[in-house]
Nucleic acid binder design. Structure first.
Length: 566
RNA sequence: CGGGGAGUAGCGCAGCCCGGUAGCGCGCCACGUUCGGGACGUGGAGGUCGCGGGUUCAAGUCCCGCCUCCCCGACCA
């Protein structure tokens, strides 16, 4: 491809809206163009990368026994009401009406349709196992699209679905998919981490995310520094440091004027925050829920949501609190009745806590569970943090940020039971099909790759997903020798099957070299009057510091060497 | 949805407070000079100032309403 023919140009200045490196660099390199919030046009350079990523995904899915198909993005709303997921997705589901006023949705994922397909086509255990996949555009009306391609409302995703006779079969399919995922990332030249994840509102037991470590990532991952434990913070469990046993003392009231936060309270009374009880109120599908946990911990809302099995969970408003007879800032589990009470396991670790008194400017000292108050449910609903103890070995956990570039779930029989996807086993008994689902965001993977591979000059593409392999740069194209030799080299390399981006523009050296660094193709070949004096080109790997001078006729052989024989 | 910010040429911005011919840098076009890390000169093209209403002799600027985009949070299979 000649750069004089390429649709876009590079930008010298950073576009104002971009903050994240991948977003900024993709805009500057002319790869993407925003059409609406979270909606992008993929320009030729990006499109080539995306196609390479898709091709790698297809090869690995096929190798793992997958069959590619394609399901519609446009679906009737009823499909989503049958499984109750119209509600579960809520506002995130794009809704529209057709000319006859029928309700349609733009699908955010395809469990319903694929399950219905399998129901119609699978009758016997002989038809199983089965892995179906597609690469299809998904629509999710995200509350806040952000960071370029990292969180968007329209995006291409590879989604795969496995169908097995039983749990053991699912375990095999699941393992196989995880292996395929690892192969995909490694072939893309990326290092990822498989971590335990929350399975969401309608997940099954097991779920893993593939995380690409990156500063700009939205997810926090906790990894054990000693053993192999690693999990998304949404999911992670942890051990609390042991506390010394202390005899329970009698409850006493203490004046705490205007002290409303845990930090202020600990400071005011001169106790560590781990000696306080935190009260947090939520509205779960409209019902007030009272949560108590130790003051040094925060509520993990994902755990809480799973525990309550609700679809909408938000902090309660002060009005809702007062309606339930509670005093914001001084609310207390003690003497509380009439609301659903959830206690975190941490309130059993420690004693003689400071708690609210449920009247203004007053707290209680020496509160003890269960002596002074009870809860309706006791569970782990605390958020794990950097420094907490590993649930498996107790060593400290450390937190890193990362981008979720893949997510796999064991769905079990949730969908097959609801939608009636059954098969006959050997004994002639009807059983629900056991399912798994497996997703990779293609565009997010590209963005993640750039997050992980760039420097202050630009992108450093991993070869397998680079839009082109070689950036052939001619300096001084007015010089007939340069123009002739560069042209000849372009033709020759292209004929040999190399993917060459040929900078044949009339531009100064600085512009061309900076653009080459910005676009970040793996290898740069430079033809100039200077190099031609030695009948040579300069070859420089984007990742390397220095260039090497290579005789013109050896350029192909050197390229093959550098690109690893492709 | 809560908080903050912004919409003026393809990109980055000034002008708005204090109403009076719409500007700067980059990019773009032409010619010439340059030519290995974002060159220089000369001449040019390019704008419903986000949209609608109002005030006024006159609105990019003042007033009202709306829309869009970005950031933080909430949210997020």
């Amino acid at each position: 491809m000649r750069m004089t023919r390429l649709l876009t140009r590079t930008l010298r200045q950073d576009p104002a809206e971009a903050e994240t490196p991948s977003h900024r660099l993709m805009l500057r390199a002319g790869m993407i163009s925003q059409v609406a919030a979270g909606v992008y046009a993929y320009l030729p350079l990006a499109q080539r990368s995306l196609r390479k990523i898709e091709e790698i995904i297809r090869q690995e899915m096929d190798a793992a026994g997958g069959q590619e198909l394609r399901m519609p993005a446009l679906q009737p709303l009823e499909t989503w009401q049958e499984t109750g997921r119209a509600g579960a997705f809520g506002q995130n589901l794009f809704h529209l009406k057709d000319r006859r006023d029928r309700d349609l949705v733009l699908a955010p994922t395809h469990e319903e349709v694929v399950t219905a397909l399998v129901r119609a086509n699978v009758q016997s255990y002989r038809d199983l196992p089965l892995v179906l996949y597609q690469i299809q555009t998904k629509f999710r009306d995200e509350p806040r699209p952000r960071a370029g391609l990292i969180r968007v409302r329209e995006f291409d995703m590879k989604d795969a679905y496995s169908f097995d006779a039983d749990e053991e079969g699912l375990d095999r399919s699941y393992r196989r998919m995880m292996e395929a995922y690892s192969a995909i990332y490694s072939r893309c030249g990326l290092s990822t981490l498989a971590v335990e994840a929350d399975s969401g509102a309608i997940g099954g037991k097991d779920s893993h995310e593939f995380i690409l470590p990156a500063e700009s990532g939205e997810d926090i991952i906790l990894r054990c520094q000693r053993c192999h434990y690693s999990a998304n913070a949404e999911r992670a469990t942890f051990r609390l440091p042991p506390v010394e046993a202390e005899p329970e003392q009698p409850l006493e009231e203490v004046r705490t004027p205007g002290v409303k936060t845990i930090a202020a309270l600990a400071d005011y009374l001169g106790v560590p925050s781990s000696k306080t009880l935190k009260a947090v109120f939520y509205s779960a599908d409209g019902h007030v829920v009272f949560v108590t946990l130790r003051g040094d911990l925060d509520v993990n809302e994902v755990k809480l949501k799973n525990l309550l099995k609700c679809t909408e969970l938000r902090l309660a408003t002060d009005e809702e609190l007062q309606g339930a007879g509670l005093v914001p800032g001084f609310a207390s589990p003690i003497g509380l009745s009439g609301v659903h009470r959830v206690g975190d396991a941490s309130i059993r670790v420690g004693s003689n806590f400071v708690a609210g008194a449920n009247k203004p400017d007053t707290h209680l000292r020496k509160a003890n569970y269960p002596r002074d108050f009870q809860v309706d449910v006791m569970a782990d609903i605390a958020l794990a943090r950097d420094g907490h103890g590993c649930p498996q070995c107790g060593a400290p956990l450390s937190g890193i940020r990362g981008i979720e570039v893949g997510h796999v779930f064991k769905l079990g029989t949730v969908f097959s039971e609801t939608l009636g996807a059954r098969y006959l086993d050997r004994e002639g008994v009807q059983r629900p099909i056991t399912m798994g689902c497996y997703g990779i965001g293609v565009g997010r993977l590209l963005a993640g790759a750039i997050e992980q591979n760039h420097d202050d000059k630009g992108i450093i593409f991993p070869t397998p997903i680079a839009p082109y392999q070689v950036h052939l740069v001619a300096l001084n194209v007015d010089d007939p020798d340069v123009s002739r030799e560069a042209e000849a080299l372009y033709q020759r390399l292209s004929a040999q099957g190399y993917e060459v981006l040929f900078d044949d523009r009339v531009e100064s050296a600085g512009v061309k070299l900076n653009d080459a660094d910005l676009i970040g193709l793996p290898v740069r070949l430079l033809v100039s009057p200077r190099s031609l004096k030695q009948r040579s080109v300069e070859l420089k790997a984007r990742r390397e510091r220095n260039a090497q001078v290579v005789p013109l006729e050896e350029a192909d052989a050197r390229l093959q060497h550098v690109l690893g024989g492709s």
